[in-house]
Computed example of a mutant assay.
Amino acid sequence: MRYADGGGLTAVGRRRRESVRLQAAELFEQKIKPLEVARRLRVSRKSAYQWHQLWREGGAQALASRGPSGSRCRLSPRCLEKLAAYLEQG
């Protein structure tokens, strides 16, 4: 999901999505098929199959959030301060 400001999900959104993936892991442990997991959790079949593959390879840990996506900021703290000042000036 993309937003106009260029960001991705918020921390709350990432936690919510991670919660759904971890629920899927619990269902996989109960030998529930990906199609049924998709139906119960109201997610796409594609997502359920991808999560199942990850779960088989690495367990529930493989479904944990990896944090925000995208590249990390390469600006130094000093440059970030300068940028903020410039932006505030208009």
Rank of each mutant, 00 (worst) to 15 (best):
M1A: 08
R2M: 12
R2E: 10
R2C: 08
R2V: 12
Y3P: 10
Y3V: 13
A4L: 06
A4W: 09
A4D: 04
A4Q: 07
A4F: 03
A4E: 07
D5H: 15
G7I: 02
G7W: 07
G7L: 10
G7M: 06
G7Q: 14
G8C: 04
G8V: 04
G8Q: 05
L9S: 06
L9C: 05
T10F: 05
T10N: 04
A11M: 09
V12S: 08
G13K: 02
R14T: 04
R15C: 05
R15V: 09
R15E: 13
R15Q: 14
R16L: 14
E18V: 11
S19R: 15
S19M: 11
S19A: 14
V20W: 03
R21L: 13
L22G: 00
Q23L: 14
Q23K: 15
Q23E: 11
E26V: 05
E26R: 15
E26Y: 02
L27W: 05
F28P: 00
F28S: 01
F28N: 00
E29T: 10
E29N: 09
Q30I: 00
Q30F: 00
K31W: 09
K31F: 10
I32Q: 07
I32F: 06
I32H: 08
P34Y: 03
L35M: 07
L35G: 05
L35A: 09
R40S: 05
R40I: 08
R40P: 08
R40G: 04
L41S: 05
L41R: 06
L41W: 08
R42V: 13
V43M: 08
V43N: 00
V43G: 01
S44V: 06
R45I: 09
R45W: 07
R45V: 14
R45C: 06
R45F: 05
K46A: 11
K46P: 02
S47Q: 15
S47Y: 14
Y49R: 14
Y49S: 08
Y49E: 13
Y49Q: 13
Q50T: 11
Q50F: 08
Q50V: 13
W51K: 00
W51T: 01
Q53T: 10
Q53M: 05
Q53W: 03
Q53P: 00
Q53F: 01
L54H: 12
W55C: 02
W55K: 06
R56A: 03
R56W: 02
R56L: 09
E57A: 07
E57L: 05
E57C: 02
G58P: 00
G58K: 04
G59Y: 02
G59C: 00
G59S: 01
A60N: 01
A60Y: 02
A60P: 01
Q61R: 13
L63G: 01
L63I: 05
A64I: 11
S65P: 07
R66E: 06
R66G: 08
R66K: 11
G67V: 03
G67W: 00
G67P: 04
P68S: 12
P68V: 09
S69W: 09
G70K: 04
R72W: 02
C73N: 14
L75M: 14
S76Y: 03
S76T: 15
P77K: 05
R78K: 11
C79Y: 00
C79W: 02
C79R: 12
C79N: 06
L80T: 09
L80F: 02
E81K: 15
K82F: 10
K82Q: 12
L83E: 04
A84N: 07
A84I: 13
A84R: 15
A84D: 12
Y86F: 09
L87E: 14
E88A: 12
G90N: 08
G90H: 09
G90W: 08
